[in-house]
Design a protein around this nucleic acid. Structure first.
Lengths: 197, 197
DNA sequence: GTGTGCAGACTAACCAGTCGGTATGTACGG
DNA sequence: CCGTACATACCGACTGGTTAGTCTGCACAC
């Protein structure tokens, strides 16, 4: 058994996932061949199909990881002990920072979701919905408390904010003038300002 | 010469473009075969390659159409004779309505841009940049006049709004509770509220 | 000696683009 | 009016290349 023959000690499945993530983000799911993935990971097809059932499974695994991470972080911020406007601000800014820090995952997430089979797509949608609803609940809480305007339905506000998060992978460049934290502060600001009563 | 043998009278090139638009939006560029396109248009490959140089040319043509339309509309609203907050509001709402009314084009635009060759991609980026800058100029005009807050750089505000426009193709459903105009009013509202000094 | 981890040749399917061919229309000389 | 010449519009079989996934087999661990 000669696992991890690349010297890094990283297990093969994780190497495959990392290579796939980078390549999917760079060239898109359909434009990335299984051959390229296994070469980038320093193994062969035998290894890939030993650990994953299909190319699609790799994609789904990328999604699952991102979703788990973001949901955990949102829950932590939303359940914190602070005024609702503070919790929303922190959550809104945090998702921007973590998205920028994992721009590869984000590009894949938003550009390649429709490449999943209907059944796996549905599964992802269900988890995304849970995330969306937790975020919406925060806004509704603030609206009920009178600290946020009720002029716009909470659902739309969520989509407004996540639109901008979604969009990050299109325009944000690490070598640009703004740090991830600065972008996050600005976008959270815009959200909170839009919600002023 | 037996063009338009489908009885509709629509010229073949336009039928091809319409079929390609629908299929690209439905299944993605890479998942749509040239064979499927010509079958949907009721012709054969010979016809397609008679009018278009490549499959990619079809995609580029879709882009060109959308960009022309949106730029024209933006220019009209931006050059109108009205206070800047009114012009921005109208332009911001209009792009939402026309995007919803051409959701197929929008999905293709945002999901398949990276499928264009570097050189054609660059061309599209240049035109998109022109659009972005016209929009930004509106915001900067308002900021200079003191009617918009200067807390956020105008560039970021533009990306914030277009993030939400971009995102429409992900969540908007024609059979949902909101009409395109209602969505547009809400999103334009959010933008203007975020910009209040 | 048995199972896990992997190698790599192989297959069956698919696909963008090509090309020789046909059919209809238009221009023009006589 | 008619025939020749050329152009436009389109057909559909074919090609060269690529791809996801399979399968046989080997090597090492226990």
């Amino acid at each position: 058994m000669a696992r991890t023959t690349d010297g890094s000690g990283t297990p093969v499945p994780q190497r495959l996932l990392a290579a796939a993530t980078r390549l999917f983000a760079e060239n898109g799911y359909d434009r990335t061949s299984v051959q390229e993935i296994v070469e980038a990971a320093g193994v062969t097809k035998g290894a890939l199909y030993h650990y994953f059932g299909s190319k699609e499974d790799l994609l789904q695994e990328v999604y699952a990881r991102v979703l788990r991470l973001q949901q955990e972080r949102l829950d932590a911020f939303a359940d914190a002990d602070a005024p609702v406007e503070r919790r929303l601000r922190d959550a809104a800014a945090d998702v921007v920072v973590t998205t920028i820090e994992n721009l590869d995952d984000a590009s894949i997430f938003f550009r390649s979701m429709h490449h999943l089979s209907p059944e796996k797509n549905k599964q992802v949608r269900v988890e995304r919905r849970r995330y969306h609803e937790r975020f919406r609940a925060l806004i509704e809480e603030g609206q009920a408390a009178g600290v946020f305007s009720t002029a716009t339905p909470a659902d739309l506000v969520v989509d407004y904010h996540f639109g901008s998060v979604h969009h990050l992978s299109t325009w944000y460049r690490p070598d640009g003038p703004l740090t991830p934290q600065q972008v996050a502060d600005h976008l959270a600001d815009l959200l909170l300002r839009a919600l002023r009563p």
